[in-house]
Design a protein around this nucleic acid. Structure first.
Lengths: 253, 253
DNA sequence: TATACAAACTTGTATATACCAATATATGAT
DNA sequence: ATCATATATTGGTATATACAAGTTTGTATA
């Protein structure tokens, strides 16, 4: 029997592009699929190495290394003698919150509402084409929303979206779900880029955020990559005086 | 011969607390020490697995796993057939640069100078004690510097330091090395907390940064943990109009 | 019932072996 | 000198084996 190409359990032996996956990768995918599907929620004790050896047909060392990798990545938590557990989602990607403004506002026990000011498809100029990494003149979607916490404006969300990534973007009702939630459902994001600046409000932003003249703004520009393209580029503007970004991270080695 | 307790090469077999280290940990420490000491700068091709087997006396699999871990942590880059290389520092802890303002300014080809305004030991009040997680009234060190890029003020560094972590802090010449560099040498940091805000400059900050009235500032508060205590808490103030924080991170699975 | 101890289970570490895959280098023919 | 080929080097993956070390569970004893 060929040791290298045997498939794990009933899992796939190739990825979406038909590239053969290593046994270790298949084990990792198997575990991640169980977690993503909800079958193994946070805190679940997953099968022991010995059980996975039986279920998946790989050797114990292969299983061990795969689980070790997922543990280093923060997906699992392992404890000698006790077992292997699904790590809480919150301990991952701790850095720079503000992944879901709706969830964050609700978590504070407050009410979140959204005003939709712009929903349009536009042909992008050279500057925007560079920002989105598309050819100039291409059509991209554009939305401009204001998020409110208990009625007070908290964030201007000025977003451009690649139609290839989210074709139905303009049909969404963003007073009911956030753009972020819709985009998350479109596909897994691979990379995130942030640029943070303090700026003075222009007149439009000042009016939308109901601020006094001269108040500083916190500007967060965020681009996310998915499926090899820039899925979305957003400018998130916050009143500096009553908003902060917080993050905490464990340092590698 | 006992497989488990044999020391790697000339390295230590125990950590600072006398706890026995695994062989794999010794290998990782060996590599990290070479990198941290500058003996292996960025881009260096480090000895091959076979050479490390000879030099350190561990088996190839042990060496391989150790290097694999460091590769996953972003410390090394490995290429099949070519070798193992020290990864550029910038690709580590990619998120939120500004770990070393001196290095960043020099990397831009500019000149970095520092003005020292305050160097003192103070007894902390309740607020500061909470921030530093020490008992109120304890002595903590305090420094206030201004970092300049080609003569222009770029950052106010207002820092409090736990004397237990860096007893010689006040004896340092911060026109020659940065506080960050001194603190890094004191011990490994385990965790970092950031809070980012946009604020309006008070009169002192405005003067130190040579800004116009009303210009916005980017405020970065950073606390770092090491050896189970808060090593340092810093307020870093930047002119918002000519400064930005950038970061890029790959999303776990 | 409570405690002590033993056994079973689980992950952690290390090695030896085997072969695969990508890269770099030496060699030889043209 | 150039190109193609063979060879050596280097990391990647997978397995089998052995033992260490921490946790849980079961059992016997006081």
């Amino acid at each position: 029997m060929n040791k290298r190409t045997r498939a794990v359990g009933f899992g796939n032996a190739t990825d979406a592009d038909g590239i053969a996956l290593s046994l270790g990768q298949q084990v990792r995918n198997y575990v991640l699929q169980k977690i993503d599907s909800g079958e193994w929620p946070e805190g679940t004790r997953i099968p022991s190495e010995a059980q996975l050896v039986e279920q998946l047909g790989a050797s114990r060392m292969t299983i061990h290394i795969a689980l070790r990798d997922l543990s280093a990545a923060g997906v699992l938590m392992r404890k000698q003698g006790a077992g292997t557990f699904v790590a809480p989602r919150s301990s991952q990607s701790t850095f720079l919150e503000l992944r879901n403004i709706h969830a964050e506002i609700e978590a504070r026990g407050n009410r979140h509402t959204t005003d939709v000011h712009v929903m349009e498809a536009i042909n992008c100029d050279l500057s925007l084409a560079t920002e989105m990494n598309v050819v100039p003149g291409s059509t991209v979607f554009h939305s401009l929303l204001v998020h409110r916490e208990n009625g007070r404006p908290l964030q201007i969300e000025d977003r451009y979206v690649n139609p290839l990534f989210a074709p139905d973007y303009l049909e969404q009702d963003f007073t009911r779900i956030t753009p972020n939630e819709h985009l998350m459902a479109m596909g897994p994001l691979k990379e995130v880029e942030h640029v943070i600046q303090a700026v003075t409000a222009d007149e439009q932003s000042r009016a939308l955020l109901e601020m006094q003249p001269g108040e500083p703004l916190l500007l967060l520009r965020r681009r996310t990559w998915s499926r090899g393209l820039i899925a979305t580029s957003a400018r998130l503007l916050h009143p500096g005086t009553r908003f902060s970004l917080a993050g905490r991270m464990t340092v590698p080695h």
